[in-house]
């Protein structure tokens, strides 16, 4: 019995390593980044677009706008495609086909982000330059590439939510004479609403956090974008681009950019967690 007790304690300690890692990450990012935010002032750091690290000017407003623009576009594309896949695969697709299509969509999640970026550079960017104008490297290119990248997240989580809707809801609706689509959008999508919201929010976190693919297709200009065909730089790409040569305060400011990114992601994750636990409570499952 004593041996069992020791095992239990040891297991508990190992099980804490994930949360310990999280604490360590939080501590180190803040320790490196917070001082510069305090010195520049939170308002100036977030709302000034003046980024001249060598002159000690650290304002990340342009990168915040860049990240938001790119993410918004990605959510429109990825959300639409991802949700359509989820609805088709759970409602309108014969089982035999699901077995093939679902792993295929999961495979999209496995393709390295640099490959997406590369495809963007080779195919999408020249296409945009030729047919829509501008330099090609743009908000639009980044949004399309990111949209495809977040699609598997949206699909797999909203598929779980759609599948969790009790079969009887569907049967009831069909029995009342509704068509398959009426049933889907009036009954099933409503019942799975919170799960779908969670999938979109988590997808959004993915999009904001993605780095390498965005660097490759976004153009990384220092200016604020004025349209979707303008090049843009995001929070993540600014960190990755400048980390290689930054030192001193400049490097600290990049960590501070990381702090902002970290806080945004944590807020999004918490919303997603809250939304999906609300769903769990409502459905009466553990």
């Amino acid at each position: 019995m004593k041996r069992e007790k020791i095992i239990s304690v040891v297991l508990a300690m190992v099980a804490m390593s994930g949360i310990a890692g999280l604490a360590l990450i939080t501590a180190y990012i803040f320790k490196e980044g917070l001082p510069i935010i305090v010195r520049v002032g939170l308002k100036d750091f977030l709302l000034s677009g003046d980024w001249h690290p060598l002159e000690g000017k650290f304002g990340i407003f342009s990168w915040i706008v860049g990240s938001l623009a790119v993410t918004l576009g990605a959510m429109i594309i990825g959300g639409l495609l991802g949700l359509s896949c989820a609805v088709v695969l759970t409602q309108f697709c014969p089982r035999r086909l699901v077995v093939v299509l679902k792993p295929a969509i999961e495979l999209l999640a496995g393709i390295p982000s640099v490959v997406y970026g590369f495809m963007g550079v080779m195919i999408l960017v020249p296409w945009i330059r030729q047919h829509l104008g501008g330099p090609g490297l743009s908000v639009l290119a980044a949004a399309v590439v990111l949209g495809i990248m977040v699609l598997p997240t949206v699909t797999s989580i909203s598929m779980d939510a759609l599948r969790a809707v009790p079969r009887s809801y569907r049967d009831g609706s069909i029995a009342l004479g509704a068509t398959g689509w009426q049933t889907t959008h009036m009954v099933i999508l409503k019942a799975a609403k919170s799960g779908i919201m969670a999938s979109l929010i988590l997808g959004m976190g993915r999009a904001i956090g993605e780095t390498m693919a965005v660097i490759m297709v976004a153009g990384n200009t220092l200016d604020l974008p004025h349209g979707i065909l303008d090049p843009v730089r995001t929070l993540t790409s600014n960190i990755a681009l400048e980390m290689s040569y930054a030192s001193g305060d400049h490097r600290k400011a990049l960590f501070a950019t990381g702090v902002v990114l970290f806080v945004i992601i944590m807020i999004l994750n918490s919303i997603a967690l809250a939304v999906s636990s609300k769903r769990a409570r409502k459905a009466g499952v553990r």
Binding site: I25, T236, L261
Partner: peptide, 15 residues
């Protein structure tokens, strides 16, 4: 802890 770790972007892990 695990849920949060899953959501953190790779660039933050890198930093």
């Amino acid at each position: 802890g695990a849920d949060c770790l899953a959501g953190i972007p790779s660039i933050i892990f890198g930093l």
